[in-house]
Design a protein around this nucleic acid. Structure first.
Length: 372
DNA sequence: AAATGCGACAACCGCATTATC
DNA sequence: CGATAATGCGGTTGTCGCATT
């Protein structure tokens, strides 16, 4: 049983709005307001449009003080920072940018910022359409055979992108500051993440960013160590929380050991985002606001925050590249938990997640924190 | 000059959440 | 308190225009 349509699609006009329609809608709302009922509004003013369409048109284009195009560097900063922190909560991000709409920001991210940051060209829709149509079916069909692919699909592209952004930034660090991700004494070198200094250490937004449901739902893991991790990261960064949950998802056993970040409390505390005790972690998790003070101490470079990283990445990549052979540094390499492969994190992260066979037992025990 | 590829943006669709009865 | 309607939101698609072949 599907949901009842919000309007009679047969008698409703679709497609681009004409200037006449815009004028009608604008004039009516400016004079009378929406009347609290978008569904009834088009009939009132004689528009053959769905109420939802009217609402969208008003919110995105007709209401006063809407800005279009020409995003400033400051706006790009805010968008990137918030995206890494909270994901594709476009309405929340838009709330921090007066005059911008969620649709505008979403389009800007998908068409420009994402490519700028991830440094890779997303396949065009045409290209995607030309891909093997059986691939998706094969990945989802059947029971155990598609475990990895299914898990891969379960991880939202948004989460992947955010993980990749962290990785990419880390790659810049490693190359720019001579850090490496080589072995730490025989074991697999843990991926080093950018410090998770809280959002906005240097600049302030109009309002503090509140954790969203995505953050709150991240606390789902049973193991005591895992719980600490999840709670800590829920307060620090939903994106990295997901990353750790993915790591646990890929290899729950390894995740409790020293090789993986989720179990590597020392490493995490060095990076400045891990409380030293479970109680402290719970305290951090209980903190409602994400503030720089709650995460202070032990950062990679004192006073150098995510915003600065993003700024450097967005606008100073060339200088970094020049200093390192004129090539934008590649991402650190990662090794599968089972040691089966070492691959670059950039283009191959998704390959890694889908190719590592981490068994079927753990899949049901871990809940992806991000609600997508 | 025509065909094709691609980016950008507007709009739609369907699910989730909230409000109302 | 449950059912239904309205609204909000994010993902996806359609379309247009420019660039390239």
């Amino acid at each position: 049983m599907g949901r009842a349509p919000c309007c009679d699609k047969a008698s409703v006009k679709k497609g681009p709005w004409s200037p006449e329609e815009d004028a009608k809608l604008k004039a009516y709302i400016e004079e009378n307001g929406t009347g609290g009922n978008w569904i009834a509004l088009p009939q009132k003013i004689g528009l053959k449009r769905c109420g939802k369409s009217c609402r969208l048109r008003w919110l995105n284009y007709l209401r006063p003080n809407i800005k279009h195009g020409d995003f400033t560097e400051e706006e790009e900063h805010i968008i990137c920072s918030l995206y890494i922190s909270i994901g594709s909560r476009w309405s929340i991000i838009a709330a921090q940018l007066p005059g911008r709409t969620d649709n505008d920001i979403k389009n800007y991210w998908n068409t420009k910022l994402k490519k700028k940051l991830l440094g890779k060209r997303a396949p065009s829709r045409r290209a995607r359409a030309n891909q093997d149509p059986c691939g998706g079916l094969a990945a989802t069909a059947g029971g155990g055979g598609g475990t990895a692919a299914a898990a891969h699909q379960a991880l939202s592209s948004s989460a992947l992108e955010r993980i990749q952004l962290h990785m990419r930034l880390q790659g810049l660090y490693n190359n720019a500051f001579g850090c490496t991700t080589t072995s730490n004494g025989g074991g697999v070198a843990p991926p080093q993440w950018p410090k998770l200094e809280a959002l906005l250490p240097n600049r302030s937004l109009p309002a503090p960013v509140q954790p969203t449901d995505a953050v709150a739902t991240a606390v789902t893991v049973q193991h005591p160590n895992h719980l600490v991790v999840a709670q800590t990261l829920a307060a620090a960064s939903a994106a990295t929380s997901e990353a750790f949950q993915v790591a646990e998802h890929l290899d729950p056993a390894a995740a409790t050991g020293a090789n993986y970040m989720p179990g590597c409390l020392d490493q995490r505390s060095k990076l400045g985002f891990c409380p030293s005790s479970a109680g402290e972690a719970a305290g951090v998790a209980a903190s409602v606001e994400m503030t720089s003070s709650s995460m202070a101490g032990g950062g990679f470079v004192a006073g150098y925050g995510l915003h600065d990283e993003l700024y450097d990445f967005l606008y100073k990549c060339e200088s970094v590249g020049v200093a390192h052979g004129g090539i934008i540094p590649s991402l650190p390499e990662l090794q599968c938990p089972d040691g089966s492969a070492i691959i670059g994190a950039d283009e191959k992260f998704s390959t890694w997640t889908s190719s590592c066979d981490y068994g079927s037992g753990g899949a049901g025990d871990y809940v992806l924190g991000y609600d997508q």
